[in-house]
């Protein structure tokens, strides 16, 4: 089967736009927001989530015909938890400063509803190659929102983008000040709320509520 058939592209693309796991299904924001004060942490978190989600999807998909139904959730969870531990260990060994910043929030990928949700809803029914694409798509969709939130929080909170100062001293001497609220938690809620609004206005998804 062609890996880049239109159907497969759809598997990756859907979660990025129309079916975004965060803005449409409200999944997995738990671990996401606390590390979105700076773009670089959000990027590393995205990479970790994409890696864990893709690999766990593939593993679960490979095992799908053998997993006893009774214990499937706990098996899925063990696989995910093991992958997260490996990600944490690798970060500690090769990106020590970053692992200090992410702290316990990396571990919380385990309870990130997206990872278990995709394992249960997609990987249990589909072939490994599709599961891989689904994992990547959902991971990237999640990461896109994460990085978007981080972009605004860093821009308005610190006046920088990806660590590079964008607001010059002239703007500051003209009376502009960094918005401290952005760095605090309410800033994350407001920005995420607005992003969800914009995204839904674009995709025309409406909640009954």
């Amino acid at each position: 089967m062609n890996l880049f058939s239109s159907k497969n592209k759809k598997i990756v693309k859907d979660p990025l736009m129309g079916e975004n796991p965060i803005s449409i299904h409200v999944l997995g924001i738990c671990s996401a927001l606390a590390i979105t004060t700076k773009i670089d942490t959000a990027v590393v978190m995205t990479i970790a989530v994409v890696a864990v989600l893709s690999i766990s999807n593939v593993v679960i998909s490979l095992l799908r015909n053998n997993i006893p139904n009774k214990v499937r959730i706990i098996i899925q969870m063990s696989v995910v938890a093991s992958l997260v531990i490996i990600a944490d260990q690798v970060l500690k060994a090769y990106m020590y400063d970053m692992s200090k910043l992410l702290g316990v929030f990396l571990a919380l990928i385990i309870t990130n509803c997206i990872v278990l949700g995709r394992a249960e809803a997609f990987a249990m029914q589909n072939s490994p190659s599709k599961a891989l694409l689904d994992g990547m798509g959902n991971g990237l969709g999640y990461g896109a929102i994460l990085i978007a939130v981080a972009f605004f929080r860093e821009l308005f909170g610190f006046g920088s983008i990806y660590g590079a100062q964008v607001f010059s001293d002239q703007i500051y001497s003209g009376g502009y000040e960094n918005n401290g609220l952005m760095i605090l938690s309410p800033g994350a809620f407001f920005i995420l709320g607005l992003i969800v609004w914009a995204h839904r206005a674009y995709t025309k998804v409406i909640d009954k509520d």
Partner: peptide
């Protein structure tokens, strides 16, 4: 606004409570 209903609004409200 219809597209803000649900999660979007909940987020903004949570932001206010958090504040």
């Amino acid at each position: 606004p219809p597209t803000l209903r649900g999660v979007g609004m909940a987020m903004l409200l949570t932001g206010l409570i958090s504040m």
